[in-house]
């Protein structure tokens, strides 16, 4: 299988972009990122693209391939219609730096404001803890996140409503959930989730879950339980009273 295919790739910087057509030969087993690299070597040496692992492990190569948010290194050309030009565009929710590269620094800023891990006293003298496999498995699902930010890219709260200032986004709910469900963590992030992180803006459309390349069940397993915890803590008067008493007891 070898065939000449047209790739229609976004070129340009923030102010000015256009879609440019490139032709290249594609062979068996190639992924979109291979085609981009080939184009870079043959005809567009200054084409900007991020990648590292080429195996779906680092989350660098996020883009929109024929409008679908994907990791370029894990998208086989075999699964795309190659008779039409293949469009490759950058993620739309973040400011463009150049070509396929966007400025994702906002995500790093948001993460910093989420309260860090605060472990309880170690169980053993050597400073270690005892935890059941069953209990670590829940947060482990969220720790599979490779920070590709594809979920942030598709979430309408960010993509359409641009509420970056008031909404942390699915990636960071996954991050917070992982800390909240860590068996030895003692910090409380619920107030922040309700307030500055704006978990209330999420209306459970599940678009984030659909695009996650790590198949993390973002909405059902992370966001909904967090929302429930927030509700329990802030909107449930009986539960609240109970907590006041029990915290006095302890």
């Amino acid at each position: 299988m070898s065939k000449t295919v047209t790739f229609r790739i976004t070129r340009g910087t923030g102010e000015k972009t256009e879609l440019v057509d490139y032709q290249t030969e594609v062979g068996e087993g190639m992924v979109v990122l291979d085609a981009v690299h080939q184009i870079q070597a043959e005809s567009a040496p200054d084409l900007a693209v991020r990648w590292n692992c080429k195996a779906g492990k680092c989350g660098s190569c996020s883009a929109e391939v024929n409008g679908m948010p994907r990791l370029m290194c894990m998208t086989r050309l075999g699964e795309i219609n190659l008779d039409e030009p293949v469009t490759i565009e950058p993620m739309r929710t973040f400011p463009l730096i150049k070509d396929l590269v966007t400025d994702v620094s906002w995500n790093y800023e948001v993460k910093k404001r989420i309260k860090k891990m605060k472990p309880r006293k170690p169980d053993n003298e050597d400073g270690s803890w005892l935890m059941d496999q069953e209990d670590v498995e829940r947060p482990q699902e969220f720790r599979k996140c490779i920070e590709c930010f594809l979920c942030q890219n598709v979430c309408h709260v960010l993509r359409d409503h641009k509420l970056h200032a008031e909404f942390a986004g699915p990636r960071h709910f996954v991050y917070a959930a992982q800390l909240e469900m860590n068996p030895i963590d003692t910090a409380d992030r619920l107030e922040d989730l309700k307030g500055p992180d704006g978990i209330g803006y999420c209306n459970i459309t599940k678009c984030c879950t659909k695009v996650c390349p790590e198949h993390i069940t973002i909405t059902d397993n992370a966001i909904i339980p967090l929302k429930e915890r927030v509700v329990d803590k802030f909107y449930d008067p009986i539960g609240k009273l109970f907590r006041v008493f029990s915290s006095r007891d302890s």
């Binding site: 803890w129 005892l130 670590v136």
Partner: peptide, 15 residues
């Protein structure tokens, strides 16, 4: 682990 890592566990709950 004190910084948040969660390794797979043995039956008795250790790393």
């Amino acid at each position: 682990e004190s910084w948040g890592a969660l390794f797979d566990r043995t039956k008795d709950g250790r790393i």
